[in-house]
């Protein structure tokens, strides 16, 4: 059982970090970023190229993944989402745009990095073995880094000036504007930050799960699941959603294994029941 809990916590930390960027962009701009998984994949490939191919230090690769995706995110906000939000009153316009960017990034990534699964050397070798738990050291490191990054992100959002401005934007866009918050500037910073988080987690996890050009869609779906559980647009909710999903997956795969692949069937069934009782998720607010 201890192994199952350890697996769940580790998966949860990964998932929470994936969901953070998605929920941030939703909170700030009311945009469901379907391209979040593709951004994760791009981040993974940047780390693969720099750490795996050019043999530069892993930290350099991770920083490059973050910076690359931050730039991609800022450009997407400025040239794609901002004009659409200004010109269209229909919310589905941004959803369609996000879906289009997801397909576009999928095609570009396939073209640039090919169809093969890619992997990089382990950042740390060895396995922690006790009587009850077996956990490779690199998973422990990645889990701890993920938790540290989540903590740093929350502190940044809570105490920094941009963080406060973004929270104000998420709470009430018009009121924030009236109070002097530069909406366009902080929307762009928020989108870049969300994309950067996707890139960094993609770079971090490429050391364990590798990366291939086709996994963007499934990653996005999992991120949406976490956001639905925790509540759309709530940072703490995304973290809770990530850990809950990780734990459900780990427990389900052990307890339900003799019944075949019913773990995700059970998770989806529970999610439907849960959302019918709490449509806004654990921590979401009815007003957005």
């Amino acid at each position: 059982m201890e192994q199952v809990i350890a697996n769940g916590l580790y998966l949860g930390a990964q998932y929470a970090l994936i969901a953070l960027g998605l929920t941030l962009i939703f909170a700030l701009m009311n945009v469901l970023n379907f391209a979040h998984g593709q951004m994760y994949v791009l981040g993974g490939f940047v780390t693969y190229s720099i750490y795996g191919q050019l043999k530069l230090p892993f930290v350099v690769a991770l920083v490059c993944s973050g910076v690359t995706l931050a730039v991609v995110g800022a450009l997407m906000e400025k040239f794609l989402f901002r004009p659409v939000i200004q010109r269209s009153k229909r919310e589905e316009s941004t959803m369609l745009l996000a879906a289009a960017t997801a397909f576009f990034l999928d095609a570009i990534i396939l073209l640039l990095f090919g169809e093969k699964q890619r992997g990089v050397p382990k950042i740390i070798s060895g396995v922690f073995i006790s009587d009850r738990v077996i956990l490779p050291y690199d998973r422990i490191v990645v889990g701890v880094v993920a938790i540290l990054m989540i903590a740093a992100f929350m502190l940044y959002m809570q105490y920094s000036k941009p963080g406060r401005a973004m929270r104000a934007l998420a709470q009430d866009r018009i009121a924030a504007q009236l109070m002097g918050v530069k909406v366009e500037r902080y929307s762009m910073i928020g989108f870049a930050l969300g994309a950067m988080l996707a890139g960094v987690v993609g770079g971090l996890l490429v050391t364990i799960t590798g990366v291939n050009s086709g996994i963007g869609g499934p990653i996005s779906i999992k991120a949406f699941l976490m956001v639905m559980i925790g509540g759309a647009g709530v940072v703490a909710g995304a973290i809770a959603g990530g850990f809950i999903l990780g734990m459900m997956e780990s427990v389900g795969l052990t307890v339900l294994r003799e019944y075949g692949d019913v773990t995700y069937l059970a998770i989806f069934a529970l999610l439907m029941i849960f959302l019918s009782i709490r449509p806004n998720g654990l921590m979401g607010k009815p007003w957005g």
């Binding site: 192994q3 199952v4 998966l11 998973r139 990653i219 780990s250 795969l253 052990t254």
Partner: peptide, 13 residues
Amino acid sequence: QNDTRDFTPVLTP
């Protein structure tokens, strides 16, 4: 699931 990225929980049992 074919899109599983971490197989540790799947393979543990």
